[in-house]
């Protein structure tokens, strides 16, 4: 299965990269949006099949390394192999 961790900056934390993208999108004529936030995605391939166990382990990884919880939010998705 794949474990997909999406990490984004918390609301209120300055996202200058998001602001720069915001400006350029508006220069291109796209105006139908507000508040762009950028982030990153980490994909882990895991052999285990027990969803709960995998979720628990992924959460521990986020807490210990993958995420700086002072400034970042995260969300974990599990995608099962077909």
């Amino acid at each position: 299965m794949k474990v997909i961790v999406n990490i984004s900056l918390k609301e209120g934390v300055l996202d200058p990269e998001g602001q720069a993208i915001d400006n350029t999108l508006r220069n291109l004529g796209f105006n139908n949006f507000n508040n762009i936030r950028t982030g990153k995605q980490i994909i882990l391939n895991i052999d285990k099949v027990n969803d709960n166990e995998v979720l628990k382990e992924a959460d521990k990884m986020c807490q210990e390394l993958l995420v700086n919880t002072v400034i970042e939010n995260y969300h974990i998705n599990i995608i099962k192999d077909k």
Partner: peptide, 16 residues
């Protein structure tokens, strides 16, 4: 800061 020895966070410079 990442080692939790000092508090807070250091993020991207405001002007990128």
């Amino acid at each position: 800061i990442e080692a939790n020895i000092l508090p807070g966070s250091l993020v991207r410079n405001k002007k990128l």
